[in-house]
Amino acid sequence: MTVSPLWHYDGVTAVRRNVLVRADGTGFHLEEPDSGWAGVPVQWADLTVIGAEKGRSAYGHRTLAGWRMGFSGEPPAEIAAHLPRAKRYGRWIDRFGFWPAAGAFTLVAGLVVWGAAEAPGVIAPLIPQSWENRMGDAMVGDFGGRVCHTPAGDAALRALVRRVDPRGEAREVALANIPLVNAVTLPGGRIILFDGLVQQAGSADEVAGVLGHELGHVRHRDTMAGLVRQLGLSVVLGGFGGNGGSYLNGVLSLSYGRDAESAADAVAIDQMRDAAISPAGTAAFFARMGGKGEAARAEQAMTWLSSHPLSTARRKRFEQAIRPGAAYRPALDRAQWTALRSACASDPLVAKAWGRDF
């Protein structure tokens, strides 16, 4: 088969030749009839695409430096079938096509995002409890000098914990002299109530609801899952060596996710039901903190920790958990509630501690 004409540089001289192609199955050679010049045999498989646009194309050789041939028009049909195709996107995208490749990429990206979101929840339960406990113990050190203790206040807090957590799932519940409307669950089953929360609460029932919610995070090990998601497994594991206190800010800024928050609310409602504590107090707490309006105020910026968005839906859930005619009892009696609220102010060792670092 002879095809003409096309241009060619042999890579040895700078002469541009107008040549013919003489094909013979798996390869071809070029020749210039006017001068009698003939090129070396070339295999079709050795051709590479230099450039290909509509009406023009150029090809090189895999091993012959400077070797070039090209068509000023479309290659004839009898030779076009042997020429390599230009790679528009690159490798496997050209092989399978743009849209199939785009679909595959979207699927893989979705799996990666899903894995990043779900993997921490799978990994966290596999972390030895002893390691998590050591990390939480180290973090408690960052609250040094702020944990409030009075005989009556400690007794009231223990009474509240016995009501909400009768099985002792939380390793420790403490009250810290920090004037923020907050509570935090540390690794290892430690719950810290902030005095600002106790002072803003209208009753011990409201604090019981918050404590029950934090107990849900303890039960589901949400703090560890959040730390793995936020900091990475290797960083979290590095904290078990005794430096876990440096990760306290990470815990304070954790966002557990809607499902985890909903599951923690469910634990709070169950624990309060079993303890005969009315969920009406927690609903009232949500109403004050998050706004009671059904539209514009349904999602306000005020939060009990940035990780606990207060919403109308959450308030309604606690309201719907109220059982008409149930024999509810206050979470604490009047004297106990007074002792808990005055614990930080009555402890001279922590009365001004929060102002040093927070």
Rank of each mutant, 00 (worst) to 15 (best):
T2S: 14
L6C: 15
A14V: 14
V15H: 14
R16V: 09
R17P: 03
R17D: 03
N18R: 14
V19L: 12
V21E: 08
A23W: 02
A23L: 08
D24T: 10
D24N: 14
G27H: 04
L30I: 04
D46P: 01
I50G: 14
A52P: 02
E53M: 10
K54P: 13
R56Q: 10
A58E: 10
Y59M: 10
W67F: 15
G70P: 03
F71R: 05
P75N: 12
A77M: 13
I79V: 15
L83H: 10
F96M: 14
F96P: 01
W99R: 14
A102K: 13
G103Y: 12
A104P: 07
T106N: 04
G110M: 11
L111M: 15
V113P: 06
A117I: 08
E118A: 15
E118S: 15
I123E: 09
A124I: 08
P128S: 06
P128G: 07
Q129Y: 04
S130A: 12
W131E: 15
N133S: 12
N133M: 10
R134N: 06
A138Q: 07
M139N: 04
G144F: 00
G153L: 08
A155N: 09
R163I: 01
G168Q: 01
E172P: 00
A174H: 01
L175D: 01
N177V: 06
N177W: 08
N177G: 07
I191S: 03
D195L: 07
G196A: 03
V198E: 08
Q199C: 04
G202F: 12
G202D: 13
A204T: 05
D205V: 00
E206C: 04
L211P: 06
L215G: 01
G216V: 01
H217V: 04
H220D: 13
R221Y: 00
D222P: 03
M224T: 15
A225N: 06
A225F: 06
L233W: 12
S234R: 13
S234L: 12
L237V: 13
F240P: 02
G245D: 11
G245L: 11
Y247D: 14
L252N: 09
L252E: 11
L252H: 07
Y256W: 13
A260R: 15
E261M: 09
D265C: 04
D265F: 02
M272S: 02
R273F: 01
R273C: 01
D274F: 03
A276S: 09
P279E: 00
P279M: 01
F285R: 02
F285H: 04
G290S: 07
G291N: 04
E294K: 11
Q300R: 13
S306K: 11
R314D: 02
K316V: 00
F318V: 01
E319F: 00
E319H: 00
G325T: 10
G325N: 11
A326V: 05
A326C: 07
A327F: 05
R329H: 13
A331Q: 09
T338N: 06
A339C: 09
A339I: 08
A343Y: 02
C344G: 10
P348N: 08
V350G: 05
D357H: 03
D357W: 01
